[in-house]
Design a protein around this nucleic acid. Structure first.
Lengths: 194, 194, 194, 194
DNA sequence: AATGAATGAGTATTCATTCAT
DNA sequence: TATGAATGAATACTCATTCAT
């Protein structure tokens, strides 16, 4: 059993999400995270190399949910358009159901220093690669415009989703994010379809 | 003559952009900005309330350029679609011509704490309101889809632009950003037109 | 059978010498000593009260070799001057043959806090008392200057030996220490003889 | 006026000597030194690069006194033997008159890590070089034994002085150190003279 | 207006020691 | 006996801001 599988590892990661969401990135001291996790400060360092390592782990662990979900969607035998719709909906849904996580990924974690953000982008890349697969398959089977610049299309999809979620978080999630998913899907589809 | 019109005010704002772009947000100490501006540390505080105030002023001053340009575009007697195209092009163009500023607005300033970013969003709102005007006029005159959710449309436009610029900055601006403007315009138009 | 006679006691003391010599006093953590000794961290505390106790034990155990040797020399039926010569030679010889030990006693153990060093001096006293016996017997039988201040004489003998060994250790023991013994002996004898 | 000449520099160095002597090396926190010096913690760092830098400066500043005194003695037109006597006496005298300093140089500073001690040894070398000059001139003019190993002789002189002072400090300086100077001188001279 | 020396609050990390198994 | 996971106290250094000159 490796460290990641031990219960305290998950305890600490989850505690970090809560502490960062509630206190903000710059006020998320290691001692606060330890207290929230119900362990001693020193225990943190049995599971994580340093504070930076906690933050990256938060992103890795949580982003893993998105990637898994997306892989599952990709494996289905449905149209690319439908896959895109499911991706948007499940992405919105996961964050709408965990407001703490939404705050952390959309606002707080972006305050980390450039080095951490570069490593976070590495984790993100996996997600974007899967997104590209949907776009490519849709272009190949004629659902999406074959002449589309794939990078621009992906930037539109991801940029729109990101901006939509961030706006929702910044407005204190006072409206229903998941409800917006089909509308976003329709808007993006119109831009991309043949 | 108010403080903003005094030469040192501008000196300090410009120094801040350079220092942040070259050293990163977290390494942009007040003393470095003072040195770059050629003034004493204490002098900064004759023109700015605190460090936070410098950062917001950077955004205000520079965002002003974008707003002025956009107002000029809005005043022209051309189609909404053309206005959108010009907005994208001039936005990309201004940042492509000032890489320091692009780094600061797309990467570094986002590392500031949530409070500063909320205030920066306040500054940004002016720009977004003008953007909305283009969208509304386009919807009214039938150029754009009348059934479109205006907020979603704006999030798509802004999100796509933002993501495109950020990707360009993160890739060390090794390709031509301005060249992408018409492509982005076309993609967005397809999504929004009637 | 007391603790000191158990095999693990010696294992741990020897491990401490190696770890301190190779890593330096300040990098000789209990966990490293435990690992080197092939026991668990907690096991250390079955044999030693605390870390300080290990360090003093190192000195006690090793200093024992010097004391035994010196007792043996004292028991011989030879002149005080010869005893002094043998003491110097065997002292130099023991350290020259265990460079780890030399590093530990001359450099590393002196970095310990004042309290430990006071206790180490207690251990050292036994050795100095034997040294005094040589000096006193030499003064009594007319070999050494009867008017000599015994304490000063001992400080000269010990100070010279110590300084000579420390210089040798600090120069990475690149010359032969034992070879210096007769020279040191001659120099000291000249200072002390009638 | 460089930093070393500013009053606060000396204030801090002197405060460090007192704090280290009274609390021990490992309990001499920067904040304690600052408090003793009557400055803020941060002020320390306007004059010293880091804590290590304070400690080395203590030794440099104070050792400077010994070196100056020794240079003055060397410049006199007297016999080498007399120079040696004056050196011992003034060395003992300076430390006897500043017990804090004696504690720091003989006990506390030796607890510093190897890197600091290497740098301290560099400072010490200057003193030893001057000491060598006395020995060499004495050997050349026939006062001292021409066949003497110069390094051993220096180790005897320095080792005896060091051991004598350390013993005095460890015995809580309850006897008169300066009074021992002529005796130490006589003992050493006997060992070295022709 | 301008200076810049001085301030002092705030925090990640290590490691000797314990104790349930 | 032996283990090793868990503990938690303790500290150097940075840098935004002030204020006497």
């Amino acid at each position: 059993m490796v460290k990641k599988d031990k219960p305290k590892y998950k305890q600490i990661v989850d505690a970090a999400v809560i502490v960062i969401a509630e206190n903000g990135y710059h006020q998320a001291q290691v001692s606060k995270i330890a207290k929230q996790a119900g362990v001693a400060d020193g225990t943190i360092y049995l599971y994580f190399k340093n504070k930076e390592d906690i933050l990256i782990s938060v992103f890795q662990e949580k982003m893993g949910m998105f990637v898994s979900k997306l892989e599952e969607i990709l494996s289905r035998d449905i149209k690319a358009s439908e896959k895109l719709g499911l991706m948007i909906e499940s992405h919105f849904s996961l964050l709408a159901n965990d407001v703490h996580l939404a705050i952390v990924t959309q606002l707080e974690l972006r305050q980390s220093n450039t080095e951490i953000r570069v490593r976070i982008n590495g984790v993100l890349r996996e997600y974007l690669i899967l997104m590209d697969k949907i776009l490519v398959s849709g272009m190949e089977n004629g659902e999406f415009d074959k002449t589309m610049d794939i990078r621009l299309a992906r930037q539109m999809v991801f940029g729109t989703m990101d901006e939509t979620i961030t706006t929702w978080v910044m407005n204190d999630h006072k409206y229903d994010l998941v409800e917006l998913a089909p509308k976003v899907h329709r808007l993006l589809m119109k831009g991309m379809r043949t």
